[in-house]
Simulated scan of single mutants.
Amino acid sequence: MGKTIARCLEQLDLRKSFVGLATGAGAIYLLYKAIRASLKCQPPLCSNSPICIARLAIERERHGRDSGEIRRLLNSLECKQDEYTRSMILHSITRCVYLLEAEASNCTMDDINLVADMLDDKNNSVKIQALNALKAFSGIRKFRLKIQEHCIKVLELISTIWDMELHVAGLRLLNNLPLPDYVHPQLRRVMPSLMEIIQSDCILAQVQAVRLLSYLAQKNDLLYDILNCQTSQPGSLLFEVLVFAERLSEGRNATHYRAVKWHYNEQSLHEALFGDESRLADRLLSLVIHPEEEVQIQACKVIVSLQCPQDLGSRPSACQPSHSYFKTGE
């Protein structure tokens, strides 16, 4: 009887050991998963330093294998992070794309969409870093069509948020892409915002806005389309564009401008507006009968400015129209 009891106790102890071992193993496994998930959601410390990323680029050149840095950053971006961390991760992705371009080329379209999703973030800093990251990816040919799909969203941000850093980032991205035709209607709608940016105090934003206008002028005659006789165009928009055209025209008569011998590309905004083949003045004539008086007056101002010889630019009264449509009886 005693032996039977002893045997039962031994079996019970053995079962307890097995249960304890299984429970311990399970706890260790769960702890491992938690640590692994935590590490996955934390951006690599190395990514915070451009020097470290440069070292990764050098190592890749030497050994021909990916560092995995971009992949780790993208994985961490998928996890729930605070605004500052999201912004820093995107900033690090931008650096990595530039310094590890061959490695960045192995990313997928889903990765591009993941970065683009950050454009909907509530924090402007995150939006700006996402725009910078997309611009970095746009330097890789295979991603351009995918990034183009988000152009309308970028235009929406530029036109609805007054943040110069965001304007610069968004415009840089747009200027780095061949814009598809379906984006042009949205471009027409954001023209007032572009005019405001050009009149701002931020030189970087001004430059990028003018570059976008230049692209539009040479690609689809958008500026001419706005300066036409269609009364459906908002008068306020026409007026702002006419003021912009007048200031550009008058700027040609400035002393410091005339002191330099400028050379313009045939497809530049300057040639589109003021070149020998420009028909800007002819198109402006149709606005002289626009329903809104301020548009009529501003159109006349631009026409007169266009007809002023540069050597008489400081004396408006001496400007003499040279085109036949200003002659009496014609």
Rank of each mutant, 00 (worst) to 15 (best):
D66R: 08
V115Y: 06
A318F: 01
V243Q: 10
K135P: 00
H290S: 10
L114V: 00
V115L: 06
R65Y: 05
L157W: 08
S232V: 09
D82N: 15
I89Q: 04
E165Q: 12
D276G: 07
G68F: 03
S200I: 04
S193R: 13
L131V: 09
N113H: 07
Y182E: 15
L73Q: 00
L285Q: 12
S249H: 03
P50D: 12
Y215V: 08
C41V: 02
K127L: 04
H91Y: 10
S47G: 07
R86S: 02
L157H: 03
V183E: 00
Q129P: 02
E240R: 12
L284Y: 04
P44G: 15
L155M: 13
V210Q: 08
C308A: 11
H150R: 10
L77W: 14
L9F: 14
C52V: 09
Q206D: 09
N175L: 09
N123L: 05
D117H: 11
R65H: 09
S17Q: 14
L312A: 05
E156G: 13
L306D: 06
R71P: 00
D110F: 09
L222V: 11
S232Y: 03
E330D: 06
E330Q: 09
A209S: 14
C8R: 07
L145S: 13
P178S: 15
S17F: 05
L174W: 10
R72V: 05
A254E: 10
R15N: 01
E165M: 07
P44Y: 09
